[in-house]
């Protein structure tokens, strides 16, 4: 009974409390953190490297998180920090495999994006999501998007990050993120419309 209560109490603790405990040597606290966030990190890695690489990327990400836990500032958002590490780990990993070039992630090709970022993407998103419900090939189409656009969609729609938080993860201004988001939706619409 006491063990169950202890476990439940531990699981209710938020990320900051678990991090504070892990820093002072509570090994179980870090294990809880891994358990809580592994699905999100694994999903992110899976979208870029497939199953074979997702295992390695997830391992490396949490190892780096553990090594740098003392550098985490409590006022930061842990999920944002974690995904920054996950993203950088994914880039390093894929670059070593030469599957994705660095420029696929880093070139913000939307330099003339100011007008575009002012455009409301809501109707475009509505259209795509209406089709996505019926579309069996969503996974495949998502995998066909350039990594630059894919990561914005995954972070925003699968992990519930705001554009501002995505900007912190990608270390890009918010208007760049919005531009990439819009282009991602446009490309996805193009893929839906292409003859199969």
């Amino acid at each position: 009974m006491c063990d169950t209560l202890y476990t439940i109490t531990r699981m209710e603790r938020d990320d900051r409390q678990l991090i504070a405990s892990a820093i002072v040597g509570d090994d179980d606290a870090f294990a809880f953190l891994v358990h809580r966030h592994l699905p999100a990190v694994y999903n992110f890695a899976y979208r870029f490297g497939g199953k074979e690489e997702a295992d390695d990327i997830a391992q490396e990400t949490f190892f780096k998180i553990w090594k740098n836990l003392k550098k985490f500032r409590p006022e930061e958002n842990f999920k944002t920090w974690m995904f920054s590490i996950a993203r950088n780990t994914t880039i390093d990993h894929m670059r070593k495999k030469r599957d994705i070039t660095f420029s696929n992630f880093e070139n913000a090709d939307g330099e003339n994006f100011f007008e575009e970022t002012l455009t409301d993407t809501e109707p475009l998103a509505d259209e795509i999501f209406a089709r996505a419900e019926k579309e069996k090939h969503l996974e495949k189409f998502l995998a066909e998007l350039p990594p630059l656009y894919r990561e914005v969609l995954i972070l925003h729609y699968q992990n519930n990050f705001t554009f501002e938080e995505i900007g912190q993860i990608l270390k890009k201004p918010i208007h760049t993120v919005k531009s990439q988001h819009r282009r991602a939706l446009e490309q996805l619409r193009g893929l839906f419309s292409a003859p199969k």
Partner: peptide, 24 residues
């Protein structure tokens, strides 16, 4: 609302149990 619409088409991949153990 878009998040909820997007999810049904996009599978949430469940990591294999051994990934957790490998990390620890």
């Amino acid at each position: 609302k878009n998040h909820k619409k997007f999810l049904p088409g996009l599978a949430n991949i469940i990591p294999p149990r051994e990934v957790y153990h490998h990390i620890l």
